[in-house]
C-alpha cells in the first residue's frame, strides 16, 4: 500500500494523449485522460467504447493516442480490455497495463453486464469511468448516473415533469460488492488525490475501478472556465464523495465542511445554481435532493466506519 503522493509537478512533460484533439473547451474527460496517460506511461494499451473520447481522441486519420489503442463497441469495455490483457499474457507481454476508459452510460447502463463479469473474474485491468452524468456523445440524454432533478434531452424540464425523477446509481458501491482489489472515486478538481489514486491503481494487480467526476460544460450548461470550480463544489456539498476501497478497507480522502451538528455545511443549492441543467428545479426538488445528499453522506461515513 503505497501512500506516496503524486502531484502535477511529478508528471513528465511528454503527452501520450496529445493536443490537437477535438474535445469541447473545458472538457473534464480530456483533462483526466491527458494527465492519466502521464501517470501510466508508454507500456499501456487503451480501450475506449463508443463515447466522446472515441470521437475527440481519434477520428481517423488524426489519432491523439501515442500508445496502442482499440475500440470494438459500446457495451464491452471491461471484457475487451480483459481480452487484450489475457492475450498480452498469452504472448509474453504481461507487464503492459491495460486501461479501459468509458463514460457513465457505457459503464452504469449498457456496459454493466460486462463490467460485473470482468470484476467477478478479477480480470487484471484498470477500468476508469469518467462520469459526466449523461450520454453526452449522443447529445445529453439521461443515464443511470444522471443526478436527481437534472435536465437532459430525455428528462426535459416539462410542464408536468421537471428533470430526472430518479437518483444517481451508485456504481462504486456496486463494484465494492464485487470485492475487487481496488475501487476509488476521484475528481478532476483534486489532482493530487486523482494522480495518487491512478498511480496506486496502475501498480496493483487484479480488477481496479476508478470513477472520476468529469465536468461536461456543454451538457451541464456551465461556462468552460468553471469546469474545475463546479467539480470542487460537488465535493464541498457532498454531491461527490472522494474515497477509496482497498483490501476491504474504505477511506474517505477529502471530508467536506460540516456544521456544528455534523451535517454538511455547504448547501447543495450552491452547487446547483452554477449549472444550467438544474436551473428549473423547484424548492421542493432542491429539498428532496438535499435530503438525499445528507443521507448519502451519512451512509458514506457509516460505510467507512464499517469497512475498517
Amino acid at each position: 500500500m503505497s501512500s506516496t503522493k503524486i502531484t502535477i509537478h511529478d508528471l513528465p512533460k511528454e503527452n501520450l494523449f496529445t493536443g490537437g484533439h477535438t474535445a469541447c473547451p473545458g472538457c473534464g474527460a480530456a483533462i483526466l485522460v491527458r494527465n492519466a496517460m502521464k501517470v501510466f506511461g508508454k507500456n499501456t494499451v487503451i480501450y475506449t467504447p463508443a463515447n466522446c473520447l472515441l470521437v475527440f481522441g481519434g477520428t481517423y486519420p488524426n489519432i491523439s493516442w501515442k500508445v496502442p489503442y482499440h475500440h470494438v463497441a459500446f457495451e464491452n469495455t471491461a471484457v475487451c480490455s480483459a481480452g487484450i490483457k489475457r492475450a498480452l499474457k498469452a504472448s509474453g507481454k504481461d507487464d503492459a497495463l491495460v486501461v479501459g476508459f468509458a463514460g457513465d452510460g457505457g459503464t452504469a447502463d449498457i456496459g454493466m453486464q460486462a463490467l460485473s463479469g470482468a470484476a467477478e473474474r478479477n480480470e487484471d485491468i484498470l477500468y476508469i469511468m469518467y462520469d459526466n452524468e449523461a450520454y453526452m456523445n449522443t447529445g445529453i440524454q439521461r443515464s443511470g448516473s444522471t443526478p436527481y432533478g437534472a435536465w437532459t434531452t430525455t428528462t426535459p424540464a416539462g410542464k408536468v415533469i421537471k428533470g430526472k425523477e430518479r437518483f444517481k446509481k451508485d456504481v462504486p458501491q456496486i463494484m465494492i460488492a464485487h470485492n475487487v482489489p481496488y475501487v476509488a472515486t476521484a475528481s478532476i478538481a483534486y489532482p493530487t488525490d486523482l494522480l495518487t489514486k491512478l498511480e496506486k491503481a496502475k501498480n496493483m494487480k487484479g480488477f481496479r475501478y476508478l470513477q472520476v467526476y468529469s465536468t461536461c460544460p456543454t451538457g451541464w450548461r456551465v461556462p468552460p472556465e468553471k469546469t474545475v470550480e463546479v467539480a470542487k463544489k460537488a465535493v464541498e456539498t457532498g454531491m461527490w464523495t472522494l474515497y477509496e476501497y482497498e483490501n476491504g478497507k474504505m477511506t474517505i480522502n477529502v471530508k467536506p465542511k460540516l456544521d456544528e451538528n455534523g451535517n454538511l455545511a455547504v448547501p447543495v443549492r450552491d452547487y446547483l445554481k452554477m449549472q444550467g441543467r438544474f436551473r428549473h428545479m423547484t424548492d421542493a426538488q432542491i429539498e428532496t435532493l438535499q435530503k438525499w445528499v445528507n443521507e448519502k453522506w451519512k451512509r458514506d461515513l457509516a460505510l467507512e466506519k464499517a469497512l475498517q
Binding site: V45, Y47, H70, V72, A73, N76, V79, C80, S81, A82, G83, I84, R86, A87, L88, A90, S91, A114
Partner: peptide, 11 residues
C-alpha cells in the same frame, strides 16, 4: 468481444 480484442492484440 473478448475474442475480437484478443485477436487484435495479436494471438
Amino acid at each position: 468481444s473478448a475474442t475480437v480484442s484478443a485477436e487484435a492484440t495479436g494471438v
